[in-house]
Amino acid sequence: MPNFGFSIHSPTHIDLDKNYRTIFNYVKVKEPSIQKCIFCGSCSATCTASNYSAMSLRKVNLLLHRGMVQEVRSLTEQCLLCGKCYLVCPRNVNTRRIILLIHEALKMPLS
């Protein structure tokens, strides 16, 4: 095989035909308030971890909605579980419980 000096990339778009929302559905059943999120970002703005890492609960929730599990794993590891996000959420989403449920789901064999 010749060495062409370049490689062909896989597309980086979000593919809703292939992404499965397994974790989202797991969380949704136990904590339906995840569905109420309007992605305003107040949780991320106040997040202790977001000051020092890429953590953003808004983003985590979005990624879960789109079935992008790999990205979720690396982000949620940064959470300090302080609960400040819960105080500011205008839709009363149980943010802290969502993080705990994500951790739980990620440990399961399906994910």
């Binding site: 980086t12 778009h13 979000i14 809703l16 992605f39 808004r58 979005l62 789109r66």
Partner: peptide, 12 residues
């Protein structure tokens, strides 16, 4: 584009 994630999005 999913403008909140800043990525192109495709679906059928």
């Amino acid at each position: 584009e999913d403008t909140l994630l800043g990525k192109p999005l495709r679906l059928t």
